[in-house]
Nucleic acid binder design. Structure first.
Lengths: 127, 127
DNA sequence: CGGCATCCTGAGAGATACTG
DNA sequence: CAGTATCTCTCAGGATGCCG
């Protein structure tokens, strides 16, 4: 199991129950947002296609991330009973609806991350 | 230093350079999004006010998160030379512009995280 | 082909104590 | 008041290998 109960020792008042926090715990994974985008653009794809399309991801992390997405109802999994089996993944309507706010975030990132990087360089230079 | 060079061992093609990934590495921190929201709503605030307003966060994590935000140019820090000193934090224009996509994400979360949780329960029940 | 199971490392984050 | 220093623990995530 992955991304399940991150932390929850002490009795916080605000933190743990915030839905945004929960969402970021899921979507903040290293490959999650990228996979949602990929599936949104490419539609239904097999495991091996995703593995090739998402350069850099290991098969383990791909399987793990897809499983988490399926668990959260964002991705549907369809097994074609061939030999060897073919497994297809696709965004659910819920998953597709998530790709919109993610796109908003992506647009901001593409427009402003340069400024963020510059600020960081400047900040580090002073220190 | 926090959140600096996360990973970069192998020569990936897609991953590391993606601005969205970079953004999520920053905003995906446990307290970051919440602090941006708090500062967006409340305007300029002192350290201790934020500490009280953001229930659950330790002084260490508050200082660390604020420092990262300042480093990224999203928050400005102003020291009032009183004794003892007062330090005020405020979103920069860049930080305020980020609060919009974050609000979009928050809206999605508030509307849909229930469905995600249900999907998760259902998935776990089957397993 | 499409996964789990296992091991290992490093970063995020909490607790606590100290300082100008 | 507003932090910094240190120590510790958990967990995401990479590497590798086995299985139906």
């Amino acid at each position: 199991m992955t991304v399940q109960s991150k932390r929850a020792p002490r009795g916080d008042l605000f933190d743990v129950r915030c839905p945004t926090r929960d969402l970021l715990d899921r979507v903040g994974g290293k490959w999650t947002a990228m996979l949602v985008k990929l599936l949104d653009e490419a539609g239904e794809r097999r495991f091996s296609e995703l593995s090739r399309g998402a350069a850099g991801i290991s098969r383990k992390m791909l399987a793990s991330t897809l499983r988490d997405l399926e668990r959260d109802g964002l991705v549907s999994r369809r097994v074609q009973p061939t030999t060897p089996p073919s497994v297809y993944y696709e965004l659910t309507p819920l998953g597709r609806s998530l790709s919109e706010p993610l796109a908003t975030l992506r647009n901001w990132a593409e427009s402003n991350m340069r400024a963020v990087d510059d600020a960081r360089i400047e900040f580090d230079r002073r220190s």
